[in-house]
């Protein structure tokens, strides 16, 4: 497989103080949908903007489709489609005028009509951008990237603030682009988005990759595929190490006053758990089991939730 995007030892320091990115390595293959996942302020936007050639890294190398930014600036821009976080397009231009404008910058753009049809914007072709809903604006922002007929699509938090239906709609568009052979790099702080959409993920925190791989690999690395969450009366509950020794338990942590166990096989662990509680004379107040998610991976790695400020 060809490498579409590669960066090595990427660093970015703002005004000599804030280290937004602290030595990041990424390799994204052609045809892949790759997700940068991390909480707000993790350095996702800084990273993607460096890769887009909009920010100069303090140090490190970037290669897009085998070329570097300084060498082939304009030629490279011809083949990239970029949607920034929160761009407010001209409010008094219509959807069609906005797309025509962006199409005019490219040597060989796609037809505006076709892109509008694909993005379900045809009905809004003659509506001013200022009159569009949040979901429509976000689709238009992605449309301005797709009209370029790009090889690589960069999307910075494409679905932040959208309702579930608009998010699904956008996911579908991204999948279609990928099916036609396009490469996608997106940032998100939504776990489910990364799990459903991305072939591979890098989890970023404080400017560093703390884990990367396919969603399944990352969850696998957690040790257990299932999470058992419970709460009970009595004082024995807080001694987390005690729960670690139950059969099938890979890891234990506390969350919102409940004990969370990562387990391989719930049917082995749960009877043992109930027996242990009975021995301590404590009553179960709460018990749930669920599939492990990327959120659990993140909590396990950082001790924090992704959406926490």
């Amino acid at each position: 497989m060809d490498v579409a995007i590669r960066c090595r030892q990427l660093r970015k320091t703002y005004e000599g103080k804030v280290e937004a990115v602290r030595g990041l390595d990424l390799e994204i293959l052609a045809g892949e949908c790759f997700g940068l996942l991390g909480p707000n302020g993790a350095g996702k936007t800084t990273t993607i903007e460096i890769l887009e050639g909009l920010l100069q890294p303090t140090s490190g190398e970037v290669e897009i489709l085998g070329s570097t930014w300084n060498a082939q600036n304009r030629e490279l821009r011809e083949v990239l489609g970029i949607s920034l976080q929160e761009t407010r397009l001209g409010e008094k231009l219509t959807v069609r005028e906005t797309l025509d404008l962006f199409a005019s910058f490219y040597r060989r753009p796609r037809s505006t009509n076709e892109v509008m049809a694909e993005m379900a914007l045809t009905e809004k072709a003659n509506t001013w951008v200022g009159k569009l809903s949040g979901g429509q604006r976000q689709r238009l922002a992605v449309a301005t990237a797709l009209v370029a007929n790009p090889k690589i699509l960069f999307l910075d938090e494409p679905t932040t603030g959208l309702d579930p239906q608009s998010r699904r709609q956008l996911w579908e568009i991204i999948r279609q682009f990928q099916q036609r052979g396009g490469t996608v790099l997106l940032t998100t702080h939504y776990m489910d988005e990364a799990e459903r959409l991305c072939d591979r993920i890098a989890i970023i925190d404080h400017g560093l990759t703390i884990a990367s791989g396919t969603p399944a690999e990352l969850i696998e690395r957690l040790g257990g595929h299932h999470m058992v969450e419970f709460d009970a009366t009595g004082d024995g509950l807080r001694e987390l190490e005690a729960w670690r020794s139950l059969p099938g338990v890979e890891a234990v942590h506390e969350e919102d006053g409940k004990v969370v166990l990562s387990v391989r096989e719930p049917h082995e662990t749960i009877p043992a758990l109930l027996a242990a509680l009975q021995k301590q004379n404590s009553h179960l107040l709460h018990l749930t089991t669920r599939q492990a998610s990327l959120e659990d991976v993140f909590v396990r790695l950082t001790g924090r939730h992704l959406r926490e400020e």
């Binding site: 085998g66 753009p109 796609r110 076709e114 007929n149 790009p150």
Partner: peptide
């Protein structure tokens, strides 16, 4: 010429409008 690491060429080459 544009970088050609991506062998398939442009993703939607069939639907491109005349060159600007």
């Amino acid at each position: 010429s544009p970088p050609t690491t991506c062998q398939e060429g442009k993703v939607n080459s069939t639907t491109a409008t005349p060159e600007n």
